Computed example of a mutant assay.
Amino acid sequence: MKKITEAIVRKDKTVNKIQFDKEWFYSLEDMQDFLNEDLSGVEYVTLPMDIYGEILDVKCATWEDIERFRQKEPLEDFRGSVLRGPLNPKGGKKK
């Protein structure tokens, strides 16, 4: 995972961004390219952005949402079912 700060991303011209309601939102597609990571699980909102003179609806997320997803444990969703110990600690079938 590439260590990066929001200040670096905000200065980068390759990442489209928009300030909405006093908070910065970043294009998820641009952030995927910038970080070279899959961000398909990040919660997003669709906001209008001016890209090359055209207004397009773009999937965007805040820096906090992106970082929360990047720092998530890879098997966190499976902890409750897959990583659970045996039903009977002695190893036999429960009767």
Rank of each mutant, 00 (worst) to 15 (best):
G53M: 13
E73N: 09
S27G: 04
R10P: 02
E43I: 07
P89K: 05
Y52D: 14
Q32C: 05
V15N: 01
S81G: 08
E76A: 15
Q71Y: 10
P89E: 07
V15Y: 06
K13T: 13
V15P: 01
K72E: 15
R70D: 00
G91C: 11
D57S: 14
G92S: 14
K93H: 06
R79A: 13
Q19P: 02
M1Y: 11
P86V: 14
K11W: 04
G53P: 03
Y44K: 08
M49L: 15
E23W: 01
G91R: 06
F78H: 11
E67W: 03
E73M: 10
G80V: 01
E37N: 00
V15Q: 02
F20D: 10
E6T: 05
K2R: 15
L56R: 13
T5P: 04
W24G: 00
D50I: 13
Q71E: 13
R10I: 07
D50P: 07
V9H: 03
D50C: 13
L35Q: 07
I55L: 11
L83W: 15
W63P: 05
P74K: 03
G53S: 13
K17H: 08
V82T: 10
E76L: 13
S40M: 05
K94A: 08
F78D: 13
E23G: 01
E43S: 11
L83S: 08
P89Y: 01
K94M: 11
W24H: 10
Y26A: 01
E76V: 07
K93E: 09
V15T: 00
K90M: 12
V58Y: 00
Y52V: 06
F20T: 04
V82R: 14
